[in-house]
Each structure stands twice: as C-alpha cells, then as structure tokens.
C-alpha cells in the first residue's frame, strides 16, 4: 500500500513535469502551427541563468527562481520575434526545421559559453529533500510539482476564459484570420502564447533541474522529446490533450521502472517510445484528438 501511494505521487509529479512542457508546445502549436523543438532548451536557459547567479553569489532560492522564470519568458518571446516570425506563414516543416536550428544554436551557445561538463545549482537541489509523513516517504519536490502544476493549469484556464487575449488565443487555434478581423493584433496573440509557454517551461526548468541535480548543454533534448510524445499522445494542439498525455507518460514511466528488471533500466526510454508508437497505431489522432477531415488545419 505504502509503495503504491509513493509511486502514485511519483507518477503524478513526473507526469506534471511533462504536462507543463507539453502545454507550452501545444499552446504555440495550436495558434500558429509551429512545432517548437527549441522548447526543451528553455530548461537550459533557466538552468544556466540560475547557475550564473550562483557563481556571482546570488544563489538564494528567492532570487534565482523569479529571475529564472523571467529570463525564460523573455527568451521565448525574443526567439519568436527573431527566428519564428520570419517563418510564420511557411509550411509546418519549415517551422519545425527552424526550431531544430534554434535548438542546436542554444545548445552550442551553452557549450561555448559555459562548459560541456555538468554544473550544479545547489539552491534548487534543496527542493529534492525527502520528508516523512507517517510511514510514507516523499520529497518536497513531488508535492511542489503536482501542486504548482495544478495551480498553473487552473490559472491558465482562467486566463484563457476570462481575458481578451486568452479568448483570442482559443479563437486563433480555430481561425486566426478571423481573429485579426476582430482587430486583435496577431503579433500580440502570438507573443502572449510564447510568453505563456516560456513561463510554463520556466517552472518545468526549475523542477527538472531540482530532480536531476545538474545541468548540461544538451539536457533539454530528452524532456522536449517526452513533451512531444505527450502532445502526440493527447492529440497534437489540444491543451487538455497535452495535460492528459503528460500524465499518461508519467504513469507509463513509473510503471516501467517498477516492471522492468534493473538490467533493462536503460531501455526505459526506448520502451516508453515503443508503447507510445503502439498507442498511435491504435489511435493515430491521439487520445483526445479528432480525426482530420478534408480542409481541416492539419499539422
């Protein structure tokens, strides 16, 4: 029983990490059809800014967390302006490849600017301390991941329902041209989408780094892959789908940790992707996605 509860929270918290990243991908994709492969590098951006602050003696948690979030948001918005705006009207593949390029650039900027070796952000790692509640053992981080993600999702829903830009974002996922006819600035809608996706990625960055304890230039790759898989699993471009896909992925991973013998631990990622492939054979449009029909906006 104890084991089940602990693992359930573990699955939930890992799933929450993926959901945060996947949501950011889904928001941008739903509005402008861009598959933002560079999204994973936001974790690196957040990580290295926190590392830099620690180097300069500003490594207190209350200082680095807001700066991390702010830096990632600004980076996301700047990238949209510089790299993704020129390919906004282009086919999805062009946007995807641009994003690959941006991703490689950021990775190598980390490599050039800092070091290929892993670095630590001690203040964030503190979040990963264990606590005992009764006979159960958890980490503070697991609660934070589950709790903060839940709050973030609620805030996002409120934003999307109560604000004009939020409404415009939902409407744009459906029909961007008509949103412009309403006098709503396309640039503003898209910049907001990137800012939100950056904010969610900033939160995810803190969690990822706390969980893994170290940052390196290529650390964004695996998380963004997982987030993509979560999106595809839930139905690409669907926000609820991204959340559900992330949670399913988290559960899948934890189950595989339990089920797979230790010698095959390294196969975990491969196994996860394999299962996802199998799910997609059964439902190519994802768990919550709709089948595309002639004339639909397709990926």
């Amino acid at each position: 029983m104890q084991y089940v509860v602990e693992q359930a929270l573990n699955a939930l918290s890992i799933g929450a990490e993926y959901s945060l990243l996947a949501l950011g991908l889904a928001i941008v994709f739903s509005i402008m059809g861009l598959v933002n492969f560079a999204h994973g590098e936001m974790i690196g951006v957040g990580g290295y800014i926190m590392y830099a602050m620690t180097l300069f003696g500003m490594g207190e948690l209350w200082m680095i967390l807001p700066v991390c979030l702010l830096t990632v948001v600004i980076t996301a918005v700047v990238l949209e302006r510089v790299a993704f705006r020129p390919v906004r009207q282009a086919p999805a593949t062009t946007g995807l490849l641009t994003a690959f390029g941006v991703s490689i650039i950021l990775q190598n900027v980390f490599l050039l600017g800092v070091s290929p070796r892993p670095k630590t952000v001690p203040a964030v790692s503190v979040l990963n301390t264990t606590v005992d509640i009764g006979s159960y053992t958890f980490t503070i981080l697991q609660f934070l991941e589950a709790g903060v993600t839940a709050i973030a999702i609620v805030l996002l829903v409120i934003f999307m329902k109560r604000t004009k830009v939020g409404l415009a974002m939902r409407a744009a996922a459906y029909d961007f041209t008509t949103v412009r006819l309403m006098g709503m600035r396309a640039n503003r809608v898209i910049a907001t989408a990137f800012a939100i996706s950056g904010f969610l990625a900033g939160i995810a960055a803190i969690f990822f780094i706390a969980r893994r304890g170290a940052i390196d230039p290529f650390m964004g790759l695996v998380p963004v892959l997982k987030a993509f898989v979560a999106c595809v699993l839930g139905g690409f471009g669907s926000l609820p789908g991204a959340v559900v896909g992330g949670l399913v992925l988290g559960i899948l991973e934890v189950v595989l940790i339990i089920v797979l013998p230790d010698v095959m631990a390294g196969m975990r990622d491969a196994a996860v992707f394999f299962i996802v492939g199998a799910i997609l054979v059964w439902r190519p449009q994802g768990l919550l996605g709709k089948k595309t029909e002639l004339g639909d906006k397709t990926a």
């Binding site: 409404l167 939902r170 409407a171 309403m182 709503m184």
Partner: peptide, 20 residues
C-alpha cells in the same frame, strides 16, 4: 460566417470588441 465554434456566443461577442 467564421464563427469561433469553440467559443460561446458571449465569448464571440467579447472578442468582437477586441479593438476597443
């Protein structure tokens, strides 16, 4: 018409006033 089918009537109308 290009109604935002995924938004409510109210939301459609609020969005119509987006420029104001």
């Amino acid at each position: 018409r290009h109604i935002f089918a995924n938004l409510t009537v109210e939301e459609n109308l609020i969005l119509g006033a987006a420029s104001r």
